[in-house]
Design a binder for these strands. Structure first.
Lengths: 113, 113
DNA sequence: CCGAGCGGTTACCTGCAGGTAACCCGAATA
DNA sequence: TATTCGGGTTACCTGCAGGTAACCGCTCGG
C-alpha cells in the first residue's frame, strides 16, 4: 500500500497551441482538403471526386472556412467554362507535415489491422 | 480565354488512412490527452488540471474512448487513497509525432498573430 | 465529527457539423 | 432545342459531442 503521489504539474506547457491549430483542421473534411491540395491547385469538382463521400454543400462550407482562416486560396479562373481553383496558402503549406504525420499513422494502423 | 483543364485524378492516393487516424484523435479533447501523457503516466485529476476547461464528464468520456481504441491504458493503483493512472499504449505513442506536428504549427500560429 | 479530495456517474439541455434533396445560372456540346 | 457540366446555394432534418449541475462512496487530515 503505497502513499499516493501528490506531484505538482511540472511546467504547465501552455498548450493553447494545440487548440489553436486543431481549430484549423477540425471538422471531418478539412484534413482531406489540405491533403489533396498538397501537390498543387485543384478545382472544386476534382476535390469532390478526390474526397469520397463529401457533399457539395459540406465541401463548400469547409473550403470557405479554410479560406477565412487563411489556409487555402480561392482563385476564379477565366477559362471556358469558368472554373475555380483552390490551393494552399503559405500557412496551409505549414500544415502539410502535420497532416502527413496523421496519414502516416493511419497507414500503420491499416497495416496491423 | 483558356480551355478548361480536364485533367485526370493522378494516383487516387487511397486516403482512408486519414479518416482512420482522425477518428482516433477527433473530438476536441483527445489530442490534449495524448499530448499531456507524452512524457509518462498521469492521474485523472492531474489531467483535469492540465487540460484547462475540460469537465470531468467529458474527460471521462474521452479517456474511455481512447482506451477502447487502444490508445491509452487505464491502471488502477492500489495506493491510499486508490488512484487511477493513465498512460499511452504503444499505439498511442505512435500518435505522438502527429500531435507534436500539430502543436508545432500552433506555436508558429501564435508567433505570427 | 467535518470537510476536502479522488474518481467518477447521472440527468438534462444545446449547438452545430453533417447528410439529403432540390434548385440555380451560364456556357458548351449534341 | 435539350442536355450536361461547373460551381455552387437553399431548406430541412438529425445525431451526438460537449456544457452544467447535482450527487456518490471512500479515505484522510484536522
Amino acid at each position: 500500500m503505497v502513499k499516493v503521489r501528490r506531484n505538482k504539474v511540472e511546467q504547465p506547457p501552455e498548450v493553447c497551441p494545440l487548440g489553436e491549430c486543431m481549430s484549423l483542421i477540425s471538422g471531418a473534411w478539412s484534413p482531406h482538403v489540405i491533403w489533396y491540395l498538397r501537390d498543387g491547385p485543384r478545382r472544386f469538382s476534382e476535390l469532390r471526386g478526390d474526397i469520397k463521400g463529401v457533399s457539395a454543400k459540406v465541401l463548400t462550407a469547409r473550403l470557405r472556412q479554410l479560406e477565412r482562416d487563411g489556409v487555402v486560396i480561392r482563385r476564379e479562373v477565366d477559362s471556358s467554362p469558368p472554373t475555380v481553383e483552390y490551393s494552399l496558402s503559405e500557412l496551409g503549406a505549414e500544415l502539410r507535415p502535420a497532416i502527413a504525420a496523421i496519414v502516416d499513422v493511419g497507414h500503420r494502423l491499416k497495416q496491423r489491422r
